[in-house]
Design a protein around this nucleic acid. Sequence first.
DNA 1: GTCTATAATTTGATAGAC
DNA 2: GTCTATCAAATTATAGAC
Lengths: 172, 172
Amino acid sequence: MTERVNAILDAAENRIRRAGYNGFSFREIASDVGIKSASVHYHFPTKADLATAVAKRYRERFEEAVAKNEAAGAGRVETWKTLFRDSLAEDNRMCLCGILAAEKEGVPEVVADEARQFFEMGVSSIAEVSKDNAENSLAYGLNILATLEGAMLLAQSMGDNTLFDLATANLK
Amino acid sequence: MTERVNAILDAAENRIRRAGYNGFSFREIASDVGIKSASVHYHFPTKADLATAVAKRYRERFEEAVAKNEAAGAGRVETWKTLFRDSLAEDNRMCLCGILAAEKEGVPEVVADEARQFFEMGVSSIAEVSKDNAENSLAYGLNILATLEGAMLLAQSMGDNTLFDLATANLK
DNA sequence: GTCTATAATTTGATAGAC
DNA sequence: GTCTATCAAATTATAGAC
């Protein structure tokens, strides 16, 4: 993964997290990186290719971050909460896959599928720490992840990141 | 509110709930309704006008539905849950304002503000039934609404509406 | 790898006839 | 109110020079 490719992915991730898949263009990405749109197409032929790569990197980084935080002694739920809260605090950006899921029918299927894979990974990751039976563990993972995603949505829309903490204060 | 204007709003609401604000065009709305795009512009000069009207009607209908369900004896949280679940079951459509909030920076400010007003209404509506102090009631309303919004997002992305019920089973 | 140039299409929006 | 016609701009994407 070259430096330039990473810069393109960074710009695309930022743009998508702000305005969605249909809210950014190759020319904007090119301008962010300091090149021309044809050069972006050289690295990622189609918009679907670019967005798929962004979502894939996002999921992989998240898995690594979960593993790292947990190795540092944090509980699984606390880890997911912290990762989302940090990304919200950092730059008012909610979850990439939350946005891609919201506009599902407006994005290429391969991209929507990457979002789906992120959520399956997240639900499993959280369900894993439940001591309950399979059905209840699934419900637990779904409930926690849903609350976190919704809390980011509300905090972003209402323009106050402390609302994320209030909405998720009782999660454990 | 004429019949034609309502048909335009219906089409626009459907399109936005599937693909977001930047995922539909005046020509598509016109085609849905059976007229030409210039006629849509006659009723709603700009895209921001159209989306604002859609979001306003959505909020008003929701407030009426909450009042009606409650008059029929349902609890406040159960009412909100039922309304969202029904709209999900009806046509796999998640909350209009959830989508507009997700792509916040990609929509005109007046439109994002309508989404914000919907969430403030929703949080207050749910917080209202809490017997706790102001801060805890706010946290309660935020938590319930966040979970419902996130549950719609996950169910839609993962392609299984029963996941909404699982994710929200413990809400009360 | 990056550029210029451009093709082909779509978009939001307007003018003016009926 | 709805239409045809059209504009100006933006979009995704490609061809070919360097």
